[in-house]
């Protein structure tokens, strides 16, 4: 089984880590270089983790488990106005990132108010492209209950956060509810506030585990990291995309950040060692995010094989 981990260390000799991961059959999901430091998000076979640990100890780096690596989470606020940002939304998004997830922040166009809150079809479809969503609500119980209409049609698990203590039964459409982080006008710095952020990460982790469990019932034809590797190799233009993460991983596929019309055929033609092309084992369609390419790997029940 592949285990998600995060390496933080010096830039010097970090390519040894990359080489070792590739030799062991793992994947480097993301590489962030910040001056003389580098952060790598890695998937590594769990039985070989000790070898990687030994090398990283030698390089004086740090290796921690990143339970959310290889997933994309939407952090949704009612709007992008000063009432909701920056404190709560940015704290939650940043905290999820530190645990390895790719986090996208979204503000709804008309998500405000108790009676007037709305979400449109496009926003719902965009959130549904993620693996999980975190909806950030305020301090009033009645408003949180009313705003259920915003996430009722969302098919991915939704973690709702808000101020007051509420029973899960009051919010039947939410995957989980995390209290004590409503609308605040300061940064999370107290131990209790950081603790709440931890609860959100745990809750998102459980939501993703549920999706993973659902996928194992009818496994994907191939794993998303393998698709990512093949696309990176055979569509080299992806590396020249201006996005910080040119190929974003989801639990059920990948998002290639290249214009759909120009590159869809190149992505469809990506061939695996087994002789099948990506077009045969996945649906390739335009993403709701800009004009990117969304690749969704078909399950074994549709293709008839797993590799």
């Amino acid at each position: 089984m592949l285990e998600p981990v995060m390496f933080t260390g010096g830039l010097y000799k970090h390519d040894l880590v990359v080489e070792l991961v590739e030799d062991l059959g793992g994947y480097v999901l993301q590489k962030n270089v910040t001056q003389s430091e580098v952060i790598l998000l890695i998937l590594i076979p769990s039985e070989d983790k000790s070898v990687l640990e030994a090398l990283i100890k030698e390089l004086r780096g740090e290796l921690v488990r990143a339970p959310l690596a290889g997933t994309e989470v939407a952090v949704v606020t009612p709007t992008l106005a000063i009432h909701h940002l920056p404190h709560t939304a940015c704290d939650i998004a940043e905290y999820l990132r530190r645990h390895g997830s790719k986090t996208n922040m979204m503000g709804l166009a008309r998500g405000v108010g108790r009676e007037i809150a709305q979400i449109n079809e496009y926003e719902t479809a965009l959130i549904n492209e993620h693996d999980a969503a975190v909806f950030i609500f305020g301090n009033f119980r009645e408003c949180i209950r009313k705003k259920e209409s915003l996430y009722r049609n969302i098919t991915v698990p939704v973690v709702v956060t808000g101020g007051p203590e509420m029973a899960k039964s009051e919010l039947p459409y939410a995957f989980e509810y995390v209290p004590s982080i409503g609308r605040v006008a300061h940064r999370a710095r107290k131990a209790t506030e950081i603790g709440t952020l931890d609860h959100i990460v745990e809750s998102v982790g459980r939501a993703l585990d549920k999706t993973r469990a659902d996928i194992t019932k009818d496994p994907l034809t191939t794993s998303p990291p393998r698709v990512m590797d093949a696309v990176r190799e055979q569509v080299p233009d992806a590396e020249y995309s201006y996005s910080p993460l040119p190929i974003a991983l989801n639990l059920g596929g990948v998002r290639v950040k290249l214009p759909y019309e120009r590159y869809k055929d190149a992505v469809k033609a990506v061939t695996f060692d087994e002789g099948v092309t990506l077009g045969e084992i996945a649906t390739i369609r335009p993403s709701h995010m800009k004009d990117y390419i969304l690749v969704r790997i078909l399950p074994a029940s549709e293709t008839g094989y797993v590799f």
Partner: peptide, 18 residues
Amino acid sequence: VTGQEDFGAKKYRELIMD
């Protein structure tokens, strides 16, 4: 704050101060 919103009242107090 009307209704069962003690938490909201407490938090809004902090928020207004901030």
